[in-house]
Design a protein around this nucleic acid. Structure first.
Lengths: 346, 346
DNA sequence: ACCCTTTGCACAATCGATTGTGCAAAGGGT
DNA sequence: ACCCTTTGCACAATCGATTGTGCAAAGGGT
């Protein structure tokens, strides 16, 4: 493109050497191929003067390495995934890889198409937060020897490498706080059923309830997307149907926002009328009408680790030893959980 | 990569035709090159059976078209830029282009390097939110005939195409609301001085103050980054130095978050003690301790329009007629602005 | 029957790099 | 002086597609 881009040929001519010599001098193989240091310098000078940058396209074709990573996320505009995109791109860039970004819009169909396109571009590896309901197309990549790292969403019993938060422990921790504060009727605002973040959180919730002897009612679980509208509908429904409800546990930030809307519309106040804990911490969590108690995932670490796993694999050619990578989670307690026990004492 | 990827050669052999015939049949040039429909079908069938996807790398080299767009943003994890990334990638994808994403971390130096790398990958066009203090390296692209579209941040008197909000009008509108509510001592929490979003907002602010006869004090303008910490420091400083201050205008969402922090630490309440308007609306703006009055930029439109301008230019080969594209802005009034006039009457 | 046009495809060059190999010139040993 | 090794580079093939051109076979007109 860029019109008169200088090619290796021009450098070679300017230096008065052959293409092969120019190529070798420029790629640091002068000693290995016995290019005299004088000739080497001629080439380097010519390249510098002509502002030569080798065509990565041509290099890719010849060396069969594109130095390209695919990153597929269900919603790049979601700050959670945006942070992952950022970590992966900067880590990749630092290691000589570039990132092709694609947004699957939470659709497995779109996800398949995007992956096909990325393969046509001969990406060397894929970092993906899959929609999460199907993994066959991803396993196919794995068997085709294309390194894949799942981030945020994994699959049970998968041959694929994954980096996720410890959803189960995180959910247990949040439930523990609610229960310790005397809550028994807790509405669970879930995301996409069948995805591991959702289901593992649910099973953590169930475990914690069982352990403390509180009955686990499936009708207290509502919602079907990690979205604001799903959170809104689910919370609205639960507020109507379960009059005794005293707390919500929202399984994502977006869901939480929707719940906030529903709670406000119902004329309830957090935390006096209804307590709440939300997955995903944010800068604004602290400044909400009631500062929100949140489960803070270590997003940077999730992104960086995923990038590292794929890049190291490409650089060394060795698959990571560990398949499942769990990143610890932190619970930030603020003011959105009301203590029912204290209030009874008073 | 992917091990035994089928190449055009294999398709040609399977169909019993030459490479050229296979290529032409697959790229829809059968009639133009008088391939019989029987032969065409043989090729198509073979390609389908072998799951042939042409190497984009080889195609790119031969056709000198990579179908690659570069997108460079100062901070992908910022929801504002993340939304732009999303709009551009999906629009590009729909039109056969893929997006190489890079994050300049608000550094012109990094920005330069990233652009050099993107050029080595032979991107056909660049969508960039530049750091905004230097444009020489961007003009160079323009003169090298690489289509560039600036988004969010432009340059005064630039030959480059840009898509931005109407910063001036937006800022005037916000100031007008504050002034109409009786505010005269208004702290401006600015971003990076010298960038067009910042400076045009400032000049909008100045215009509005002048028009209403309120003195414009430069010491009321503080801050130097579009970041939370800059907003925090600036607000903290102003609260200390200007005891008569009654309102803040924060020139970005992140700045606003920092200001919230400083205001809380100073023990002041919004809006009673201090009013506030923030640039950039967000889902949570409504649920803050005091629901925030915000200037809502049409981010989707900014991103989509930028993508459209670059893609259409590539598709048609014609430069857009208009250089400067301004997208209207909307002000969402909530509860963070206190009416000083009413309170005096009472 | 002959010639000219059309049909239907294959050959070979090409994009811009990398890399295995070959060969002349220089150097070194006796 | 002669031969062998080392030095220093160039030639040409190659990655996987696209595309200009040439040519044999078929068809059509008189």
């Amino acid at each position: 493109m860029t019109h008169a881009a200088t090619k290796l040929k021009h450098v070679a001519e300017a230096a008065g050497v052959s293409l092969s010599t120019a190529s070798r001098a420029l790629s640091g193989k002068a000693v290995a191929y016995r290019i005299s240091s004088h000739t080497e310098q001629l080439v380097l000078d010519a390249a510098a003067k002509l502002d030569f940058r080798p065509s990565q396209v041509a290099q890719s074709l010849r060396t069969q390495k594109t130095k390209l990573l695919g990153v597929v996320l269900p919603d790049v505009s979601n700050p959670f995934f945006a942070s992952i995109a950022r970590e992966v791109t900067t880590y990749a860039e630092e290691n000589g890889y570039s990132v092709l970004l694609a947004d699957s819009r939470e659709s497995t169909e779109v996800e398949r198409k995007l992956i096909a396109q990325l393969r046509a571009r001969e990406i060397e590896g894929l970092v993906i937060s899959p929609v999460g309901l199907h993994q066959q197309h991803l396993e196919k990549l794995h068997t085709a020897n294309l390194p894949v790292v799942l981030v945020d969403r994994g699959f049970a019993e998968s041959p694929l490498v994954s980096v996720t938060s410890n959803h189960r422990e995180a959910a247990r921790g949040a439930m523990k706080i609610l229960i310790e504060n005397g809550h028994q009727e807790i509405g669970i605002l879930q995301g996409i059923p069948g995805t591991t973040p959702n289901d593992e959180r649910l099973s953590g919730i169930e475990e914690e309830l069982k352990e403390t002897g509180i009955p686990f009612t499936s009708s207290m679980i509502q919602g079907n997307q990690f979205s604001e509208s799903s959170g809104y509908e689910a919370a609205k429904f639960l507020l109507k149907k379960h009059l005794g409800i005293t707390a919500f546990f929202a399984l994502s930030n977006q869901i939480g926002l929707g719940a906030l809307q529903a709670i406000a519309e119902a004329g309830r106040k957090i935390p006096q009328d209804i307590s709440m804990i939300t997955f995903d911490d944010h800068p604004y969590s602290e400044f909400l009408a009631s500062p929100m108690t949140t489960v803070r995932q270590n997003i940077k670490e999730l992104g960086r680790l995923a990038a590292e796993l794929i890049v190291k694999q490409l650089l060394t050619g060795r698959k990571p030893k560990k398949k499942v990578h769990q990143v610890p989670v932190e619970i930030i307690e603020r003011a959105s959980v009301f203590n029912l026990l204290n209030s009874e004492k008073e």
